[in-house]
Nucleic acid binder design. Structure first.
Lengths: 157, 157
DNA sequence: ATAAGAGTTAAAGTTAACTTTAAGTCAAGT
DNA sequence: ACTTGACTTAAAGTTAACTTTAACTCTTAT
């Protein structure tokens, strides 16, 4: 295996990318990467594909699903291999998403802090319950917790 | 259905907790909640179980798996139903975990920021690669990206 | 010439957290 | 008496992201 080769076998690609051959075939089946075939139907990955594979792993670390990553790649003209500039654009977008996730968690954190000592945890008062399902209202979501406050028997529909 | 009843059918429990009956049976199969049986082999959940169910949902929102939640419940003396004090203890622990997750993400965020413009992304220099697998070293993890820098051919084992 | 090693495909297995389906039981209302 | 609705269980299905297995095919080193 020459390090300067332009095309790599799946085994070499796996070694250099740190991604199992089975995963590479899987990524290919999902359209995330591509290969050419040589005699014997064996795959050959272009060296540049290593960059793409690495970006996939980074994106996964950032919390993106393969579906989302594929969608991101699809925004590249001709679905070309990401250039340095493409990487800058993609990672900027992903950075913003990450910021949002962090903000959401911090929000959740402050809600939890407010609820740690309260012990109420009722649907109406507890910020934790009204966290995920803002528009849920009555009809879904845990109702009364500590205390299990009975209503009037005339709950709204 | 009387709101002041001490024991609820699975249907009533589902309605008041906002959790599907299938999910309740599933939680029970995993030991997260428990019930008594009445004539006809039908389940009855104690009203207090609603609190437990709600805590399960909150814990899930915080990112815990059912396995972890079960483990947390197991720390309660006699695996009793969580009291207000228990909730304070559990949620304090979970708050710390959440803090750690947030810190991890912020760390990742700053690494990403540093890499957005750089375009190097090599194993040795890139903070993003050395993110998850600190001790990975050579042998796993994407190697060379933009640039695909060839080594000496004498890589360490 | 041959055996080992690397590749190939399709299909099944894995884990989490449930949901859906199938087939059957039970109690209550008409 | 009979239908309806709620309930029961076991087993299979769902999604994501892969891995494992089985059964072959090719290439390469000896």
């Amino acid at each position: 295996m020459q390090l300067s080769q332009k095309f790599l076998t799946i085994g070499d690609t796996a070694q250099r990318s740190g991604v199992a051959t089975s995963a590479l075939r899987f990524y290919e089946s999902r359209g995330l990467i591509s290969s050419v075939r040589v005699a014997g139907n064996h795959r050959r990955y272009h060296r540049a594909m290593l960059r793409r594979i690495a970006i996939i792993r980074v994106a996964q670390t950032l919390g993106l699903s393969l579906r989302e990553i594929a969608a991101a790649f699809a925004t590249l003209p001709d679905n070309r291999n990401p250039t340095k500039k493409d990487w800058a654009r993609l990672s900027t977008t992903w950075g913003k998403q990450l910021d949002r996730r962090i903000a959401d968690l911090e929000n959740l954190r402050s809600r939890l802090s407010g609820c740690i000592g309260c012990g109420c945890l009722s649907l109406k008062n507890c910020a934790l319950y009204n966290a995920g399902d803002e528009a849920a209202g009555l009809g879904s979501g845990p109702r009364y917790l500590l205390g299990d406050v009975p209503g009037t028997g005339q709950e709204p529909p």
